[in-house]
Amino acid sequence: MVSTLIRMELKKLVMQKEIHIILAICTLMIGLSQKVYYSVEEVQLYRFSKSLLDFVPMVGYLFLLFPIIVAVARVLPFEYEQKMMELLATYKYGRKIFLLVKLIVLFCYCAFIVFYFFLVAGIISYFFYGLDNWMLDIESIGYMYIDLGGEWRVWEVLAFEYVYLLLSTFTFVLCLFLVAQFVRRSIFIMLIGGATFLVVELFDKYVTRFINHDYINLIIKYSFNRLVNFEFLNVFTFPQLFIGLIIGMLLLIIVNILVEGITVND
């Protein structure tokens, strides 16, 4: 039963033109940003591995959240915008299953987006440098953006980055989903999601130069931007972060399902 619902919901998401457009824009941006780094970087060994591993923490995080914001903004208000809320009240499986299915679909979408970013970055790096050895020790690559400590191989770091990004982006999805339950129009959800990201980014880069206030620094330190660009690893250890994210996600899922958002059209 649930698998059919998930399939239908996935189909609904994939059919949206907005998703295609934002993916095209993101692909273009990944291409541009990768191109920029190739022209700047000095010649060194194992550049494929290095560029792939450093891509998301350095530039990729700037636009990783955007396709996700668009998906959240299209998944939840879809029924409202199609004026189907009254029809939805007759939904056979109830509101909780309905929201849960949407969350599962968004989780799959997050997994796809993170994979897609690595894939595109990997393909572009491959065209420039060719492949490296996946079993390579990261000590031999030299300086990396994330400092993990200990002995790690390239594929292990990649897997770590993937899991970390999946968890952090899905936490962001859950928070935005909660907001989206009270906001009716997708364009406003996009604005709210984009603004939470952008305002912190602007404060981080420009405003803190002029105003150095403790509260502002605190907000920036614990923002989603810092979570996605791996800066949280400097504050917490990975087990702490992992457990915290899982607990946070579970709580947010429960809140999302229990909260009474907009149910029927006015």
Binding site: K17, I21, V40, V59, V70, I187
Partner: peptide, 26 residues
């Protein structure tokens, strides 16, 4: 309208890239 939101986001992405990375100089 929602398509328009996406294009605005695209422009914001581009401007972030232009300001943060050497893309602007290029």
């Amino acid at each position: 309208n929602s398509i328009w939101g996406i294009f605005s986001m695209g422009w914001i992405l581009f401007s972030i890239l232009v300001i943060y990375t050497p893309l602007g100089e290029m």
